[in-house]
Design a protein around this nucleic acid. Structure first.
Lengths: 104, 104
DNA sequence: TTGACAAATAGACAACCATCAATATAATAA
DNA sequence: TTATTATATTGATGGTTGTCTATTTGTCAA
């Protein structure tokens, strides 16, 4: 978990559309078209672009099936990035200590 | 803690210079000039700009003293934003549950 | 092989942002 | 008051990014 990873992680979250996509595929696998339909206000290429950003940040997993590609949020990645953020920038918090215990 | 807050929080972290500034004033109060000197590669107006971004995200506290302004990272804010992120985007993780217990 | 559908990629454009030099504001000292 | 120091603000500039349309690639069915 390098500093670069944390910047990529933050960049990924620094956009409302991407947050909506992550919320959608938080606990289920969705095809690109399903994401496009549920968002309702962005085109398919735009969604593909955002999914590429999320992939590069390690925040979504992809699974190919026939013509379709299904995506799902990598919750473990969210946890470890948030944990790292707390370790780096909130070392004096007891919440951080609790997270550190759980993460090791 | 609205969705807008989370986007502001992520934007604040989505820049390497701002991460360095936050690291510097993580556990102490620093004047703007001290931050400029410790960074070494950015001008004073640039630092003031970044501090404004961090202020608007609620991530630093400011204290005026004479001509100087001292800044310090708000660690509690880091914790609550990270916690909210985990609650929203990693609800199935046991680390998230541990954080939720601590945060209430 | 052809046609249809799903997703990714390319290219263009406008909006945003990180940075700087220059200037303004505010507080103190002489 | 005038000069000096610390910080904030303004305006400009180059780079990045979110979005779109158009096209390409890949997969399957007829």
């Amino acid at each position: 978990m390098t500093k670069h990873d944390i910047v990529l992680f933050a960049k990924a979250f620094a956009d409302d559309t991407r947050q909506k996509i992550m919320k959608l595929c938080c606990c289920e696998w969705l095809s690109v078209n399903e994401i496009v339909e549920r968002l309702g206000n962005v085109t398919q290429p735009t969604v593909s672009h955002h999914l590429a950003v999320l992939r590069e940040a390690g925040l979504v997993d992809a699974r190919h099936e026939g013509k379709q590609t299904f995506y799902s949020l990598n919750q473990q990645r969210v946890v470890s990035c948030c944990g790292q953020l707390m370790l780096n920038f909130a070392p004096e918090s007891d919440v951080t200590e609790a997270v550190a215990d759980k993460l090791e």
